[in-house]
Design a protein around this nucleic acid. Structure first.
Lengths: 229, 229
DNA sequence: CCCTCCGGTCACGGAACTGTCACACTACGA
DNA sequence: TCGTAGTGTGACAGTTCCGTGACCGGAGGG
């Protein structure tokens, strides 16, 4: 599998080495010598993987990693960090910043390619399958179940997806159009008011476990899911 | 191979780190910050692996491990313990409590994933040989027999494999494609709807011993085998 | 050769779900 | 207070999805 890869490395010789190696493997390579350049590059083209030198002169490697992790657009992009030595401090700092993997210099092109393939394979296009819990309400995507107050809640597929979306986007007001985009998909042509109906069906389902008032109507704007009552 | 994983870790930052990393690898993640939460979570969904922080504030890590090992439903679930440092005392205590493996902090996502895959590999062949029992329904792979309510149940080979797959992957929803991959093999060219027919044949066979309602239809998603009614 | 068992497919009917509407109701400004 | 825009609710028809019985063909045994 080939990918679009951003290489963030300040040392020209090493950057060249990596870029050539990756290009030979069929990847589309973009280069940056600093965090600023990297952000500009990402603003243009969202890469599939970021190779990030941890030893940038101004200590901007970890900072850049955190920025990528904190912004919605780049949150899911895997980061492989390049470290001079595998010290424990580096590992800890890297993991806390959200790096997916690290490669210690010196490394072979083979190893680098293997790591890239690994993170690409691991990348999941779908929503996170992690269970979510709010106010005693537990939604488990793996079992496709919702439980509240000890009992299992019954609801239709659309209501389930709707609840999943809400529980992973707490306290924010979503317009009906946004909800349609996120839950139904951005290609459908469905009336806004349809959302209202599914909101009601979701409320009905939630009230079975006493979880009323979790879905709040914001008049003139849309709906919002409250993280606490 | 992806799995359902329970992360027991009281430190929110580390818990988040691990959970995100595992979710990115395609695993279904459930979280708990204490032994009590962990037990509640397990009561709902039986995980394939438990990641257990050994340094829970109230010393409940080893206690939880022993409880899991002493209860029939959780006896077979592999436990990977997370230790701050690999002191000998920890190793001894961990192994005595029944942990299958341990990982020392700091650790990389790769390392963690490798350990998980290792215990899953180690566990799977055992599951395929050992008898499985759910709700009085006993499936014995060695003799290829199924017994429920005292009498032997008659079913075809495909239904047997299907039941075996279900009984070793409880509560989770499987799409028809996943079921085809796991039971028929991932190379077959069979209609999705064929799964439906075998589901019915399996249900018919199970109803002979009164085990109705064990195979649940999840409309729009697939099927799931319930561990308790 | 026949007979039985089993696996895969199909067609049909029913059940569940969806999107929409009409109407009742509520909140908010004039 | 009243009017109006916005929202909740019940109902309904179209659609999708699933359970079921039946069929056919192949494998294997007597």
């Amino acid at each position: 599998m080939t990918a679009s890869i951003l290489v963030v490395e300040d040392e020209p010789a090493i950057q060249e080495l990596i870029a050539v190696s990756l290009a030979r493997s069929g990847h589309a390579v973009q280069r940056a010598a600093s965090a600023e350049e990297a952000m500009r590059s990402i603003a243009g083209v969202l890469p599939d993987v970021v190779l990030l030198d941890w030893m940038l002169p101004d200590e901007s490697g970890p900072i850049l990693a955190r920025r990528l992790r904190n912004e919605a657009r780049t949150r899911e992009v895997p980061i492989i960090m390049l470290t001079a030595r595998a010290s424990d401090e580096d590992k800890v700092a890297g993991l806390e910043s959200g790096a997916d993997d690290y490669v210690t210099k010196p490394f072979s092109p083979r190893e680098l390619e293997a790591r890239i393939q690994a993170v690409l394979r691991r990348r999941t296009p779908q929503l996170s399958k992690e269970a979510v819990e709010i106010e005693g309400l537990v939604l488990n995507p793996a079992t496709r179940t919702v439980a509240g107050a000890g009992k299992s809640l019954k609801m239709g597929p659309t209501e389930f997806e709707l609840l999943h979306f809400f529980m992973t986007h707490l306290d924010r007001v979503h317009t009906r159009a946004q909800i349609l985009d996120q839950v139904w998909g951005d290609h459908v042509f469905i009336e806004d008011r349809t959302v209202d109906v599914h909101i009601r069906r979701l409320r009905d389902a939630l009230s079975a476990s006493g979880h009323d008032d979790l879905v709040e109507t914001v008049r003139g704007a849309g709906y919002r899911f409250l993280s606490k009552r």
